[in-house]
Nucleic acid binder design. Structure first.
Lengths: 229, 229
DNA sequence: TCAAAAGTGTTCCGAATACACCCATGA
DNA sequence: TCATGGGTGTATTCGGAACACTTTTGA
């Protein structure tokens, strides 16, 4: 089983982050355009090598910050991809993460870097051809994303601290590409006992909505919505 | 973001497999006793280095086979662990998998290897102290296991091709440490439309039970049982 | 007074739960 | 005939789904 520590050559290890946001009533993903070979001028999921003195999550946060300038976003490990030939340069194992960032945070300037000529948000429905096995990674991320919306409270990480029930519903309608009944949606959301009242919105030219915020202590899994096709 | 391919030193990469079975009416996990430092004589989850010419899954299957002599078992990737100091020998990133093997397969002889002095099944309720961050990995695996039993048909990978409904129920009662109502359990299982009749058991000294087998084409996620505490 | 979005209740249906007795067989 | 596990039905409760109109505000 185990040999001495350095008997085997070591593969390279990268982290890749699938960064989602909701913008212009669409689910979007952040991609970068590669400046170098391989896959020069192809779009790719942002990522980079893991340094020896940082954990996988630290590496991912660093990449995320370098690419978007944002911190403190929803971040979770997705899956590790390790096919032998997934990178033509040699053996590279990647640990993929996925992140959800809110509209305001995402509105900050995106910055190209030394290895990237462009950075842009792509609607999930109109993706370009992707480098490496990134199409597969993205597929995986989309599945996970939907699952997370059904079974956990991640949706709220796309909203402000205070939000209206209609805003929550809109997010769900975008993610699931489906309309929900307003009364049932609100009833379900309120019955979960995860929200608390947070005053009223002002300065709208119609009936002002109630604001809510997420309660602090919530179990990890809260079956939010059962969505059928 | 990216530098030239070999600008960074590479961490070592291992795979670890949490191997579960149900034996003697208990959920058990396979552990190995380490022959060498670090953590000499401590119990650990079996695992080893990923070779340059094998994928993560291939490496895991190889380890699984070396340790238990079994092939063709349920295997899925669990999570990757990459804290900087998780291995005192240096930077080691591990991709953890979990496997479920059936009683008969598990009954084969377990074999010690060059780096392992003993191999043994431990009931999940009476675990020894574990090497590295393996306690954390095992915790993670236990959670995933329960989830899988609630939402998928993994349970059947612990049974023969043909099985009785009572056998299925026993497996669930062991995993969830909880009794289920026989009529409701059977009703639910049959209503899922995932089983087909496979004759009758013979040679039992009581009313012979119906046998069932799992239908071939089943969606990935079938909400089998909702289990409440 | 109008436009815009907020807010609200009831009926129906299907699934989950609780619960106890008879059946078929070999010993 | 007995011991052993196999097998079965009904009533109740709870949550999900369908469905349309009134309210509040600023412009």
């Amino acid at each position: 089983m185990e040999k001495k520590f350095d008997d085997y050559p070591h593969p390279a290890v990268t982290v890749d982050v699938v960064i989602f946001t909701v913008k212009d009533k669409e689910l979007k993903v952040l991609l970068v355009k590669r400046k170098n070979e391989p896959f020069k001028n192809k779009w790719a999921i942002p990522g980079g090598f893991v340094r020896m003195n940082e954990s996988l999550e630290e590496a991912t946060k660093r990449e995320l910050f370098e690419e978007t300038g944002v911190k403190d976003v929803y971040l979770e490990q997705l899956y590790s991809f390790g096919e032998v030939d997934r990178d033509p340069r040699g053996r590279v194992i990647t640990i993929a993460y996925f992140a959800l960032i809110s509209l305001e945070k995402a509105a900050q300037k995106l910055r190209a870097t030394t290895d990237v000529s462009e950075v842009a948000w792509f609607p999930i429905s109109k993706l370009p051809e992707l480098a490496f096995d990134h199409a597969k990674i993205l597929e995986y991320a989309k599945k996970r994303l939907r699952w997370k919306f059904e079974y956990t409270t991640v949706a709220f990480s796309l909203l402000d601290k205070k939000f209206t029930l209609s805003e929550v519903q809109k997010i769900y309608e975008i993610i699931f590409q489906k309309k929900f009944d307003k009364r049932n949606f609100r009833k379900k959301l309120l019955s979960l006992n995860i929200l608390e009242s947070a005053g009223k919105e002002k300065e709208v030219s119609h009936r002002p909505p109630q604001l809510f915020s997420l309660k602090k202590k919530i179990g990890e899994i809260v079956e939010i919505l059962k969505v059928q096709d």
